[in-house]
Computed example of a mutant assay.
Amino acid sequence: MEFLFNAYAFDGELDLNRLAQKLGMTRKYRWEEPMKLNPVTFAPVPSANGEQAYLYYFGGVVFLNCSADLIARFLDAIQGHAGQMKRRHQFPFHEEYRLEIDPQRETAIANNCAVMPRCDPTFLDIICFVIAKSVALERIEARIDQVFDEVEVLIAKLARGKLELPDRDMARMASSILSFKFTSIAHIMVLDKPEITWDDPQADRLYLTMAGLFELNQRYLEIRHKSETLLDMTGVFTSLSHARRSARLEWIIIILIAIEIVLYLLELFRH
């Protein structure tokens, strides 16, 4: 028996409770709890059984045993219910994983596939949870790299003695950096484990192994470090911008005083 996983990240978080209402569901979802849907009927699926889609509110969707055509049709159909959903070709962040069930082989877990002697729905849930976190982190990593590129341009201008950045753009950059830290902590909750791992030692070991293979904690620490570095750089740019503005105001005041003195002297000369 073989299970194929395909994970994608979409733009922003997904309000599962609002989506549940649009799909005619009444239950409430917690942050770590995925919405499991039949990718054809959009009906809720209680446990792993055939083709399935796992939706996570932190911005990930994982397809279990779904063909490429079925994934594309699902994303096209659900975008009317969730604004963050886009067509498949607009999903640059993608993760694939494979699980083989073979009673004759021992458990083996790698970064692209795993082998287990028996099938446990809990294990499927954990694999989906980890790779959904991984693609969500990949989305943040790509965005923070874009901000680094923007800052690099500013540093190059600063080296030439130029710093032309409006306060609105500076505030937008700082807001983006803070959102990276908030999203990785509050939305993705990289450092938190699924509730099932507290009661099931095997599930806990699998989660820790998978999280280690996908380097979730290390990637989170790197995002936090980069965010703090960018905030420090933004603080420097803000200080320089304010100093430049203060110097400009001082020169304006000096010029106005000089003009006033000249006018006063002219008035004395006339008399």
Rank of each mutant, 00 (worst) to 15 (best):
F129T: 06
Y56P: 08
L154N: 02
Y29P: 03
D120F: 04
I101H: 02
N17A: 06
D120H: 09
R205P: 00
L240V: 06
Q104R: 15
L221V: 09
I144Q: 01
P121Y: 03
S239L: 14
K193C: 08
A48L: 07
E32C: 07
F74T: 02
R87S: 15
H271S: 14
D204Y: 07
T197C: 12
I196L: 02
N17Q: 04
L158E: 06
F148I: 00
S175Q: 14
H94N: 14
I252D: 12
F129L: 08
L64A: 01
V236M: 15
R245I: 04
G60C: 04
L249Q: 11
P117D: 04
A114C: 08
F3A: 04
R270T: 11
H242W: 05
R98F: 07
Q218T: 09
A156K: 11
E96P: 01
F182Q: 14
L256G: 07
D200W: 01
E164V: 11
F91Y: 12
L14G: 06
D232V: 11
V130P: 00
L256S: 15
E33F: 06
E152K: 00
D149R: 08
R27N: 13
M25I: 14
N17M: 12
E138M: 14
G235M: 09
A72Y: 00
M170H: 09
R219G: 10
V135P: 01
N17Y: 11
I259L: 11
I252Q: 13
L137Y: 01
I255M: 10
A77D: 03
H94F: 13
I185R: 02
A156N: 01
H81W: 10
G235V: 07
N111G: 12
L216P: 05
I155C: 05
A114V: 01
H94G: 04
L64Q: 09
E100K: 10
G50K: 05
R105E: 07
T122L: 14
R73Y: 03
I144G: 04
L208I: 14
D145M: 03
Q21I: 13
E152F: 04
L178Y: 12
N49S: 15
M25Y: 10
V153T: 14
A108L: 14
R30F: 15
R105C: 08
V153Q: 08
P39F: 04
E152H: 12
K226A: 10
D169I: 08
Y220S: 01
H242C: 02
L158H: 07
L137T: 06
Y57K: 08
R139V: 05
E215Q: 12
G161W: 11
D15P: 06
R30D: 12
W198P: 00
C113R: 15
L256M: 15
D102H: 09
D76I: 09
L206S: 03
V61A: 05
